[in-house]
């Protein structure tokens, strides 16, 4: 697939990533992850073991022929396929991602499906594509009768969650997040830029300007990484919020231990992001202090556990 901004390539890529805890009491092993992600028989699940265990399903295509989202109300139609894939990180976190890319213009008439199927993951406009309006409309959320790729990602999450090998008793309750993103090529000479916004109900939006020739798959990879780390930070911060040191020990310990057992080791930004896109995360991290906050939270959890151990030991000694 050609990259963003190249002569024959797309001018816009959009996607949505859903992130949730895999609904099982313990992390699944590599074999189980493979079994869960075997969404197609003709293509294997890709596994990687370093720097963390990661499994990703083959891509699934969904054919669409519909109105594109728009903020201005300009109606533009596009036809083609949306790519979707699911990934399991360290056997513990499930991510489903759906994305597409689109060129600036296409044939003035709708072609036969064969024309669109040779470009997987690409939505080809009928006529010109109002790029800005579509990108803004996509981030604002589709209106009725406009393309909504959220359900495509969600249906993968739902399909995997129904699998019989999952015991459906997660060790802690966590809220899912959806991250909606758009990527356009950065203007000449400008560097990568990223605008990250958090809304209610676990929705995040990311507006990216990426180097020329970045492939849509690489942009999706960056957003999956952002979504994973945002989800981790949100989940751990929420669990610690209002957790009073005066709580009875068993309850506090249960929360702290579940975080240590299941989430703390997952923080590993940029482990699977294309090298040219590292600046996007670095910029975001610099501005929002994600890593600093994560380190502080992780340290706090460990300190609490140590304090408790010291306290229970001294209680034991005094009771003797």
């Amino acid at each position: 697939m050609s990259g963003l901004g190249t002569t024959s390539g797309p001018v816009l890529a959009c996607g949505e990533v859903h992130t949730c805890l895999l609904p099982t009491s313990d992390a699944v092993d590599e074999r189980a992850a493979e079994q869960l992600l075997r969404l197609r028989t003709d293509e294997p699940v890709r596994l990687s073991r370093h720097p963390s265990r990661y499994a990703v399903s083959p891509g699934l295509l969904t054919g669409v022929d519909c109105w594109m989202p728009s903020v201005t109300g300009t109606r533009s139609r596009a036809v083609g396929t949306v790519t979707a894939r699911a990934a399991i990180v360290e056997g513990r976190v499930l991510q489903s991602s759906a994305y597409f890319s689109a060129p600036a213009c296409g044939p003035d008439r709708r072609q036969s499906w064969g024309h669109y199927l040779v470009r997987p993951g690409c939505l080809i406009p009928v006529g010109r594509l109002p790029v800005r309006s579509v990108a803004e409309g996509f981030l604002a959320g589709p209106r009725q009768n406009e393309l909504d790729i959220g359900p495509i990602a969600e249906s993968l999450t739902a399909r995997i969650s129904r699998h019989r090998i999952l015991d459906l008793s997660p060790p802690l309750t966590t809220a899912d997040t959806s991250l909606r993103w758009t990527a356009t090529p950065a203007a000449g000479g400008k560097e990568t830029s990223v605008l990250f916004t958090k809304a209610d109900d676990g929705l995040r939006t990311v507006e990216l300007r990426l180097p020329h020739a970045t492939t849509p798959a690489a942009a999706a990879g960056l957003c999956e990484d952002l979504a994973l780390h945002d989800w981790l930070l949100t989940t751990v911060a929420y669990k610690l919020d209002g957790l009073q040191a005066g709580y009875e020990d068993s309850r506090l310990l249960k929360v702290l231990c579940s975080l240590v057992d299941h989430l703390l080791h997952l923080w590993m930004p940029l482990s699977r992001v294309d090298r040219t896109l590292h600046t996007a995360w670095e910029e975001l991290d610099e501005n929002s202090g994600y890593s600093r906050q994560w380190n502080a939270l992780a340290q706090r959890i460990r300190d609490q556990l140590v304090l408790r151990a010291v306290r229970s030991r001294s209680e034991l000694l005094t009771s003797d």
Binding site: L21, P170, T173, A175
Partner: peptide, 13 residues
């Protein structure tokens, strides 16, 4: 219904 409940039970005990 199944999809909804599976989604909610990740979030709620």
């Amino acid at each position: 219904l199944v999809d909804l409940v599976l989604r909610l039970q990740r979030e709620f005990s």
